[in-house]
Design a protein around this nucleic acid. Sequence first.
DNA 1: GCTTACTGTTAGCCATGGCTTACCAAGCGG
DNA 2: CCGCTTGGTAAGCCATGGCTAACAGTAAGC
Lengths: 103, 103
Amino acid sequence: MAYQAAFLALADPTRRRVFEELRRGPRSVGKIAARMPVSRPAVSQHLRVLKNAGLVADRAEGTRRVYCIDPKGLAAIRIWLDQFWDEALSAFQAELEKKEAAE
Amino acid sequence: MAYQAAFLALADPTRRRVFEELRRGPRSVGKIAARMPVSRPAVSQHLRVLKNAGLVADRAEGTRRVYCIDPKGLAAIRIWLDQFWDEALSAFQAELEKKEAAE
DNA sequence: GCTTACTGTTAGCCATGGCTTACCAAGCGG
DNA sequence: CCGCTTGGTAAGCCATGGCTAACAGTAAGC
């Protein structure tokens, strides 16, 4: 059920960009916001959504908070995806043949 | 770049339910809408978004249109996901140790 | 202690988008 | 032909959510 929040979180382009920024390594909120076209509070809100979705984790470091990618959320999407992958591939081939046979 | 549309399409619960309905096999629009709490035009709009995202494909069958899952969109997400998977796993372990060391 | 740096939170504005209702187009059967 | 079925489309309504600006809180340095 967790993929619900993960998909919702990654749907927004800005929020996904925040997430992808963390791919280059753990960063503080300010560092991330400096590379983004939106304000720092906006980044903070995005990080909260990402955290609730299990996509990022945070760690206090003095007055700064360092965020990093949490595999938990990614795993949820991956599991959901695998449910479709194999059977979708084979079923799609069958459909292609039906479609071409109808032309 | 295609995962953009795929994530956006799968973020909506109703639309994802439409998509998951197709997991049980190809169906017509009416068949899908009958199992959903929303109207048929709504389902039609959802299918259009899913189609633009490369998540479903359609085939004309008389006056009916039969939709099925298209692996193309799923593949886009999978590729994006794999970019993060391995490195996120190892990087997260390192972060966990840092976090525990700080406590 | 006081200032400074860094971050989370709130209120409010505004654009996006999902839903319904109504309408229109296209095959099929009598 | 004509009515019935099936499905895509347009207009409009309304809720959701992303953004900014202003505020509050906490830790570090002097």
